[in-house]
């Protein structure tokens, strides 16, 4: 109970202290220093040495003991300056699909003459990245972060720490960012048979397979020419699809919310995401019809990301 209250208090205090922009300069206001496990041992050793010095009345052991203590104090300064003055700049990161590991990119800058060794950086609960800043004044890192849901993901608390040079004290800072990262929905491979072609597409039915323009995919059926099979997809473990070609007069492909009426909501989003991926990779021109949003057909990157964003936020 008390623990909980304390945790809350500490959290509030930290929030105030650590509230961050996308551009953070590490200074004494943000940096904390405490002895590391090694440092605690080191201090215990000094107590032991002090006992030896007193019992043996040995001045040189006294001197050694105070020297180690002094070294510990120096280590506090050295470790502090190993992080002090670093600037963390959150950079644009590409949105991952939910379930993938996101790599959040930071640029870390140092003062011209400073040297920073062995810095550890990680998001809460994620694996860490280790780096040095010795010669160049800027270093880019990409911190891994697991994602599970589509939509806006607020960045978890970031810890940057170092125990250099002696490993006796840990200097660290926890950074909280207001920025969010957009996570695209998990793509699901489309099963074309479920794609009920809506009325707009009816005329295409029964049309002879032309050879000019690639139109889209349909599920492979026995007896179709093997050259029509989308082998790349097969290699990726997708169900067998065969390529359909239109002779130039067929309509654009659409990512159509209403095309999958029987799927559950999230699954529908995932499938449409998969379809968007597919269209984008194949370079096709495609449009998008979602509840409340309609985007005219296009095949640019911006278009693709617009669609994924819309899907992510649906």
């Amino acid at each position: 109970m008390i623990k909980k209250v304390i945790h809350q208090q500490v959290d509030q205090w930290m929030d105030k202290r650590l509230a961050s922009e996308s551009d953070i300069l590490l200074t004494q206001q943000r940096l904390f220093i405490l002895p590391s496990m090694q440092g605690v041992f080191f201090l215990l050793i000094q107590i032991l040495l002090l006992l030896i010095a007193i019992n043996y009345q040995n001045n040189l052991v006294y001197a050694l003991c105070f020297f180690l203590f002094s070294l510990f104090i120096s280590a506090i300064f050295f470790t502090f300056f190993n992080l002090n003055g670093l600037r963390l700049v959150l950079e644009e990161s590409s949105s991952p699909f939910a379930g993938q590991t996101a790599f959040v990119r930071f640029a870390i800058e140092k003062q011209p003459k400073a040297q920073h060794h062995h810095i550890l950086c990680h998001f809460k609960g994620e694996s860490q990245v280790v780096f040095d800043l010795l010669e160049s004044n800027q270093h880019r890192i990409a911190l891994p972060m697991t994602t599970d849901k589509r939509g806006w993901l607020s960045l978890p608390e970031l810890t940057i720490k170092s125990t250099f040079p002696l490993g006796l004290v840990t200097c660290w800072s926890r950074l909280r960012f207001k920025q969010n990262l957009l996570i695209y929905p998990t793509p699901l491979d489309m099963d074309q048979r479920q794609l009920k072609t809506s009325g707009r597409d009816d005329e295409g039915e029964g049309q002879q397979m032309g050879d000019e323009h690639f139109k889209g995919f349909k599920a492979f059926e026995e007896g179709e020419a093997l050259s029509r099979i989308y082998w790349k997809g097969v290699a990726k473990g997708q169900p067998m699809l065969s390529k359909e070609y239109s002779d130039g007069q067929s309509k654009e492909a659409w990512i159509d919310w209403d095309a999958l009426p029987y799927e559950p909501f999230e699954r529908r989003i995932s499938q449409l995401t998969g379809l968007a991926n597919y269209y984008h990779q194949s370079g096709q021109v495609y449009g998008c019809r979602l509840p409340g949003i309609t985007l005219p057909p296009s095949n640019t990157d911006a278009h693709y990301h617009k669609i994924l964003t819309a899907l992510a936020l649906l």
Binding site: A63, F67, F69, S70, L71, I73, S74, A75, F78, P165
Partner: peptide, 9 residues
């Protein structure tokens, strides 16, 4: 580091 530690020692 050692040199800087001398005063406190």
């Amino acid at each position: 580091m050692m040199l800087l530690s001398v005063p406190i020692m």
